[in-house]
Design a protein around this nucleic acid. Structure first.
Length: 498
RNA sequence: GGGCUUGUAACUCAGUGGUAGAGUAUCUGCCUUUUAAGCAGAGAGUCGAUGGUUCGAAUCCAUCCAGGCUCACCA
């Protein structure tokens, strides 16, 4: 018999022994008078008044010696040592205690005291099983060396951590902190936007047509309607319909689904914040982005600086605003402002950038930007005025038909958001979507599709509008200093195990 | 998809051609203030999978599976 089966067998035997003692290993009721943190925060008081308290939690380490035993009990709030003495709890209760395994949920009634070694502990008067575990938890031990906790046999296999996130959360306390921060940031975003009179909305995830971004969708099928539906790749087109409908400020925090590769900054489903504001433009979107991220930093982290290795990122306003063309010129000396296809191509070839014959000057300018500029943008920077060619939903820049009023936000070399003065000219919008559609026919699987229903909404009239999309997962990565998106998503997509 | 790299007990890892190892966990015994408890003993493995080379493979080779880093792709 292999090891794990043997361990499970032992645990099942113990469960049976409990049942033989007429003890329900999974009782319906339990009792808790105190969270562990309450005891820990007023140690002297609880020792002095000898109050009888009842705690519940999962059993961690066990140190048993003959007629006395120690164990650690953890609830969500903290961890405390328990001390179980045969003379104290009695024969019957001690028998139950001996049937406890690591990982079991238990209830301990007792009073607080300090052990000879000075550790604050709970002296058990009565013990009770709340839930028997049948699988052994990986064992992580820790020792305090020079005031620092040193871990042994850490549960550190990255693949296992993601596949069995519950174990990760249980065994690596810092993981929970990341998701607490995530929750807090989301809460602060909502707080901030609500204070600015933005209304939170929910729009369809299952869509008859998809749009609002360049990406391949997931396809699914509705049985009763007998039609294919797409999982949304962006929130944009439905939000604009709401702006048409007269709601002036809206936002949604929701999942997008893109059927593309996965790596440390891409998960097939990811969380986006999109917001739209009528009677506003991309300058307003820059203001609100700046203000919101600074608000998060101050509210959640009480700072306006993010240290990154030897760099310090300052979130103090104002952030730099510079056009893509300007930044390219700054980094490379190359002036692309005239959109001269031949000159741009020869620049690309000189620098060994791949040139797709189908690419226009706008697409190539973006490639030059990605190759030379992106990584240099450490301090928060709004990169503005994107080529129109690659911005089918953004409004043209007045006086320059090659450019649009669009920006992307870069911090520490990564992209965090995308925003524009939204295109609200229905004729222009139709032309641009049809141009995308042509790209599609030429084989660009990520080009937008023509959404007649959306175009019709545009034709009824949309006010001048600013729109913003922010990648929430990446924002969490920034604030928690994680380099993998899997660290900030509770259940990241994994390949199936063989 | 390319390059590099990892996969050995439930967990963390040694083991580079000659009988599968350690610590933790589990079990047995001793132990009434321990804390990575201790001491003594025991059980526990398809060495990621499949082929191949070899008298002999965890080890060498090939392919595949699942990770990680990195480059490419990708709003």
């Amino acid at each position: 018999m292999d090891n794990i089966k043997q361990v499970i067998g032992v645990k099942k035997q113990k469960l049976k022994k409990l049942q033989d003692l007429k003890i329900n290993p999974y009782p319906n009721r339990c009792k808790r008078t105190h969270k562990i943190i309450q005891l820990l925060s007023k140690k002297e008081e609880y020792i002095k008044n000898e109050e009888v308290v009842t705690i519940t939690g999962r059993l961690g380490a066990m140190r048993r010696m003959g007629k006395v035993g120690f164990g650690n009990i953890s609830d969500e709030s903290g961890r405390i040592q328990i001390f179980v003495k045969k003379d104290q709890v009695g024969e019957e209760n001690y028998k139950i205690f001996k049937l406890f395994d690591l990982g079991d949920f238990v209830q301990i009634e007792g009073n607080c005291f300090n052990t000879n070694r000075g550790e604050f502990s709970l002296r058990a008067h009565r013990v009770k099983i709340l839930s028997k575990s049948l699988l052994p938890l990986p064992t992580v031990k820790e020792k305090v060396v020079d005031g620092k906790k040193k871990r042994f046999d850490e549960f550190s296999d990255i693949e296992l951590r993601y596949r069995k996130r519950y174990l990760d959360l249980l065994l690596n306390p810092e993981v929970k902190e990341i998701f607490q921060i995530r929750a807090k940031i989301l809460q602060k975003i909502r707080e901030f936007l609500n204070s600015k009179d933005f209304m939170e909305v929910e729009t369809p995830i299952l869509q008859p047509l998809y749009g609002g971004a360049n990406a391949r969708p997931f396809v699914t099928h509705h049985n009763t309607l007998d039609i294919d539906l797409y999982m949304r790749i962006a929130l944009e087109l439905y939000h604009k319909r709401l702006i048409v409908g007269g709601i002036e400020r809206i936002f949604e925090i929701g999942k997008n689904f893109r059927n593309e590769g996965m790596d440390r900054s891409h998960n097939p489903e990811f969380t986006m914040l999109e917001l739209y504001q009528a009677y506003a433009d991309y300058n307003d979107m820059m203001d609100i982005t700046e203000e919101m991220i600074l608000y998060i930093a101050k509210e959640v982290f009480k700072t306006d600086k993010l240290p990154f290795g030897d760099k310090i990122i300052s979130l103090k306003k104002p952030w730099r605003r510079a056009s893509m063309i300007e930044l390219i010129k700054e980094e490379t000396g190359f002036d692309a402002s005239n959109f001269d296809l031949e000159k741009i191509k020869s620049f690309c070839e000189k620098h060994e950038l791949e040139v797709d014959e189908k690419s226009g000057p706008g697409k190539l300018i973006e490639e030059i930007f990605e190759a030379f500029v992106e990584d240099e943008l450490i301090q928060p920077t709004f990169v503005t005025d994107f080529p129109k060619e690659i911005s089918p939903l953004a409004k043209e820049k007045p006086g320059n038909s090659d450019l649009t009023e669009r920006f992307e936000l870069f911090i520490n070399g990564n992209e965090y958001g995308n925003a524009f003065t939204e295109l609200n000219d229905p004729v222009d919008q139709r032309e641009r979507l049809e141009a995308q559609s042509k790209l599609r026919e030429m084989g660009d699987v990520e080009a937008n599709v023509v959404d007649e229903d959306f175009l019709e909404a545009m034709e009824y009239g949309m006010p001048p509008t600013g729109g913003l999309g922010l990648g929430i997962d990446r924002l969490i990565m920034l604030f928690t200093k994680k380099s993998s998106i899997k660290e900030v998503i509770l259940f990241p997509q994994m390949k199936p195990e063989e």
